[in-house]
Every structure is written in C-alpha cells, then in structure tokens.
C-alpha cells in the first residue's frame, strides 16, 4: 500500500498543471532535439544504408515511414483510452487534456499511414488503393478518431466533453481488436492473401534497425508535440488562475 501511496503522490504532483507546465517546458527542447537526431539517423540508415529488397526494389523503403506511423496510430488511441479512464476515475484535468490533445496527433499519424500505404500500393499493386486488411483497418481507425474529435467539439463544456470522449475512447478500444479481426477475416475471404511485406517476420537486421530507430523517433515526436499542445491547452484553460498570471508577469518583465 505504501508503494501505491507514493506512486499516487508522485502522480498528483506531476498532474498539477503548474508543475507539468514547468517540467514539460524544461524537457521539451531535449525531446525535440533527440527526435531530430534520431529522425535524421533513421532516414539515413533506412533510405541509404539499408539493403535493397530483392522483391520490391527501392519502393519498400516507404515502410520506414509507413510502419512507424501505423504503430503510432494504434499506440495513441490506446493512450487516449488509458488517459481517458484515468480522467474518468480520478477526475484529473491533466489526463483529460492529454487525452484530447492526443486525438489530432493520432489522426495525423493514421492519415500518414494511409497515404504512405497507398503510395506504396502504386508500384506494388499498380493502383492507389487496395482494400488490403491493414489499410482498411487504418481507414476505420481514422473514422474512430474523427468520431472522437467531432464529439469533443460538439459539447460546449470542455470537462463534460472530455468525459464523454473518454467513454467513447474506451468503447472504441474494446472494439478495435474486433474491428481488426473482422477486417482480417473479411480480407482473406474476399481477396486471397495479398503479398504484404509489412509483416514479414524474417526481416533482415539491417532493415530492422532503421525501422526501430524511426519508431523511437516517432514516439519522441508524439511526446514533443503532445507536450506543446497540452501546454497551450493548459494556458488557455487556466488563464484566470494564479500561476498563469504569475507566469505572464515574469514573461513580460
């Protein structure tokens, strides 16, 4: 119980808006700096150092953007559900704001995964769009993100909106595996197995390393842009509170 107590204390400290604002401001340059480094390293090793694929040629290299983006699209939705649950149960304003600030970032990653997937499809299938199981799942995930953002914007009181969105995100997260599974099933019955390099398990190490670097870079980008969004939202929401006025005074001096 003691450990729980101290975790909770730590959590409450971190969740207090002024503290989060200060700490995130300190961390932000490092996170973004590290992102730029890793992103550059990932691109260089993925696009130039990694060997060419014997089946797909150079075109396969788009996976270094596509796959991390697809991973992030799922990851961020799960983050939304978890922070949503925290916001619902403990009524933490910061959790609510993290949840809602994640939505547009997650939707952008989903969109990026869709676009890169369809660009990859052009040389592979000679068409811009194929109802491939993965692309379809991404499309449906994008719809889920749209629903979340539409609901948030429709409800005027933002704390109420955040609670409503949290419920929706939780319902969504229960449904995602079902949606994913149903789409896979639908796809195998309708299309027969498509040649997909995305999930080839025996990917060579020299191809895997750049992929993992890019995945870490994308995570850092998410954290960085999330911090920026949360900071803006916190300032807007707490503009009347003491710590914001103090902050403005010290800034203007």
């Amino acid at each position: 119980m003691n450990i729980f107590g101290s975790i909770k204390r730590l959590y409450h400290q971190f969740a207090s808006p002024p503290y989060f604002y200060r700490i995130s401001g300190l961390w932000l340059p490092y996170i973004m700096g590290l992102f730029v480094l890793l992103f550059a390293a990932g691109l260089y090793s993925g696009l130039i150092l990694a060997p060419i694929d014997y089946e797909q040629g150079e075109a396969y290299r788009i996976i270094y953007v596509h796959v991390p983006a697809a991973w992030m699209s799922m990851f961020i939705y799960i983050v939304m559900a978890i922070t949503g649950a925290i916001g619902l149960i403990w009524r933490l304003k910061l959790a609510e704001i993290v949840m809602i600030s994640s939505a547009p970032i997650g939707a952008s990653f989903t969109f990026l995964a869709l676009v890169t997937g369809s660009i990859w499809g052009k040389p592979m299938w000679n068409t811009w769009w194929v109802w491939d199981a993965r692309l379809t799942s991404e499309l449906l995930l994008l719809f889920l993100y749209f629903g979340v953002m539409a609901l948030y914007n429709a409800i005027e009181d933002k704390r109420t909106a955040a609670r409503a969105v949290a419920i929706l995100a939780l319902v969504g997260v229960v449904n995602i595996p079902i949606i994913h599974y149903s789409v896979e099933w639908w796809n195998t019955l309708h299309q027969g197995p498509t040649i997909t390099k995305f999930d080839k398990p025996s990917i060579h190490l020299s191809m895997l390393v750049p992929l993992l670097i890019m995945a870490v870079a994308f995570k850092l980008f998410y954290i960085g842009s999330l911090f920026m969004r949360v900071r803006t939202e916190l300032l807007a929401r707490e503009q009347k509170s003491k710590w914001v006025t103090q902050l403005l005074e010290t800034k203007s001096n």
């Binding site: 449906l140 719809f143 629903g147 449904n175 949606i179 599974y181």
Partner: peptide, 10 residues
C-alpha cells in the same frame, strides 16, 4: 453517425 458507424462494421 460519426460515432457509431465505425463500431457497426464488425
């Protein structure tokens, strides 16, 4: 419809 149509897909 934006909220529930995606959930109807399975």
């Amino acid at each position: 419809s934006l909220l529930i149509l995606p959930l109807y897909i399975p």
